[in-house]
Simulated assay, not measured.
Amino acid sequence: MSLQRSYTLIAPFYDAAIDRATRAARQHSLRALPEQPGRVLLAGVGTGLDLPHLPPQHHYVGLDLTHAMLRRALPRAGRADFVPVQGDAQRLPFADHSFDSAVLHLILAVVPQPALCFAEIARVVRPGGQVLVFDKFLRAGQPALLRRLVNPLMRRLATRLDVVFEEVLAAAPDLALEHDQPALAGGWFRLLRLRRL
């Protein structure tokens, strides 16, 4: 099943499964957005769970692969300066250095090629810009046998369970890690902040 098809089917149930469990971590991550107004990419905006927690001074572009997710995001935008865009986070339809910041919440473990997605983020964020990541990652060398065992099925339905952030980061040498904090599930989920060199 394609990622677009599976997330079209998941869209009606996504919030019930994800919202409450991830809300505090999302809010914590978004507090790191700069005070200076800028252009912010929400890569994998999904149903818009981040939208109610965004500071109002920025212009937001929310990208998602599926129309079903974007349709659910729009009512959450409220008064935010928000533009939805349907597209692939692995092939961003934006010019180089066109954003001041990017937010990647629960997207790197979803896309088939997280390193390609991250390289694209590095391309579209301006030098000096910021990238905020909240997702689940294995640690380098971590066996996690059960996660790896069920990964072939899970990655076809909804999400990957085998992404190692350090491997993803290696594909984007223009992004420097500034902050790394465990968030949920005993540190499986992490809050990361990076700077575009």
Rank of each mutant, 00 (worst) to 15 (best):
R196I: 00
D135E: 06
A158P: 00
V164P: 00
G62E: 04
Q90K: 02
S29I: 12
Q142W: 10
L42E: 14
L194Y: 05
H97S: 15
R193W: 09
R147N: 11
G141A: 11
L175M: 11
R139E: 15
Y14R: 06
A17V: 14
G141V: 07
T8E: 15
P152G: 10
D88F: 07
V163S: 02
P143Y: 09
F189K: 05
Q57K: 12
T159W: 08
A172D: 03
F13K: 07
P112F: 07
Q57S: 15
I121L: 13
E166I: 13
F189S: 09
L65P: 02
E166V: 11
G46D: 11
R71K: 14
L104I: 08
D81N: 12
H105G: 09
R190V: 05
P182R: 03
I107G: 05
L9T: 08
L70R: 01
P93Q: 03
A115S: 12
L74W: 12
R26K: 12
P84F: 01
P127Y: 05
D174C: 09
A172V: 03
P152Q: 07
H105I: 13
L3D: 08
I121R: 00
Q142N: 05
L104D: 06
M1P: 06
T159Y: 13
L92P: 00
A11C: 12
A115I: 01
L153K: 06
P84E: 04
V150S: 05
Q90F: 05
L153R: 12
V133E: 01
G128E: 04
C117P: 02
R79M: 13
V131D: 02
T66C: 12
L116F: 03
S98D: 08
R76S: 01
G186H: 04
P37K: 10
L51G: 02
R76N: 06
V168A: 01
P84Y: 03
A80L: 15
S6R: 08
R195D: 00
A102S: 11
P55C: 13
V168I: 12
R123V: 01
P55T: 13
Q86Y: 07
L70T: 05
L104S: 07
R196A: 04
S98V: 02
A24Y: 08
A170G: 07
P114K: 07
L197F: 11
R156F: 14
H179M: 12
L108M: 09
R156D: 15
V103Y: 03
G129K: 00
P182A: 05
S2T: 13
L42C: 11
Q86V: 07
S6Y: 01
L116D: 09
M69R: 05
T22R: 03
R76Q: 09
L63Y: 01
S6G: 02
L41K: 02
L194F: 04
G38M: 08
V85F: 09
L41H: 01
I18R: 09
D50Y: 08
P37W: 11
V133W: 02
P52Y: 15
L42S: 08
D15Q: 02
E120N: 04
F99Y: 10
V125L: 02
E178S: 13
H58G: 07
P112L: 10
L65G: 06
V124E: 00
A25N: 00
A16Y: 08
D19A: 15
L104R: 06
P93D: 02
A122E: 15
D50N: 15
R72M: 10
A43S: 13
M69S: 12
P75I: 09
L92W: 00
L41A: 08
F99R: 01
